[in-house]
């Protein structure tokens, strides 16, 4: 990751007002703004890391913790709500053992709620990454999770 950050900083060398573009690039490449990234940027742009953190936390677009491999979004819009998605959300929280905005300890899943995904016909709706799972119920959860968990394990096997 250190190398990626260095590369990003280098690509902005000499630019004026480059702090936010650098932060955006770092987030795109690394998924989040890490302490190391802030320290490296601070050294380069000669702004203290605290000021950089201050700037970054002002904007909602930046995150400071490592995201999960897969992001689970639970719709809590009106249609999904009346079709019982809040119960689904409760169930997912229990199974994963995390709250909204958190990630599982193995960095596999992150959980977020959204207000409407524009597919109310599929309510109650849960998405994992870009996959839509309509008419969601707790029974489906285990299957879906094991699918992604397997995927991950498979990918790791290939790497080995």
């Amino acid at each position: 990751m250190q190398k990626t950050i260095e590369k990003i900083i280098k690509s902005h060398e000499g630019e004026k007002g480059s702090l936010i573009p650098i932060l955006q690039d770092v987030q795109r490449e690394c998924g989040y703004i890490s302490e190391e990234a802030v320290a490296a940027i601070a050294k380069d742009v000669k702004i203290s890391e605290h000021e950089i953190y201050g700037v970054a936390t002002f904007y909602a677009q930046f995150r400071f913790t490592k995201p999960g491999d897969h992001l689970i979004k639970v719709c809590v819009g009106t249609a999904c709500h009346v079709r019982g998605n809040s119960l689904n959300l409760m169930h997912i929280k229990k199974i994963l053992g995390i709250d909204e905005g958190e990630i599982t300890f193995d960095y596999r899943f992150g959980l977020e709620t959204v207000n409407c995904l524009g597919a109310c016909a599929l309510a109650p709706l849960v998405t994992v990454d870009d996959e839509y799972y309509g008419n969601f119920s707790p029974i489906k959860l285990k299957k879906i999770l094991s699918k992604y968990a397997k995927e991950k394990a498979g990918a790791e096997d290939e790497e080995d």
Partner: peptide, 13 residues
């Protein structure tokens, strides 16, 4: 920041 040039604190969030 301005006088001491340290920048040890900032507004966050």
């Amino acid at each position: 920041q301005e006088v001491r040039g340290i920048g040890a604190i900032a507004f966050t969030k």
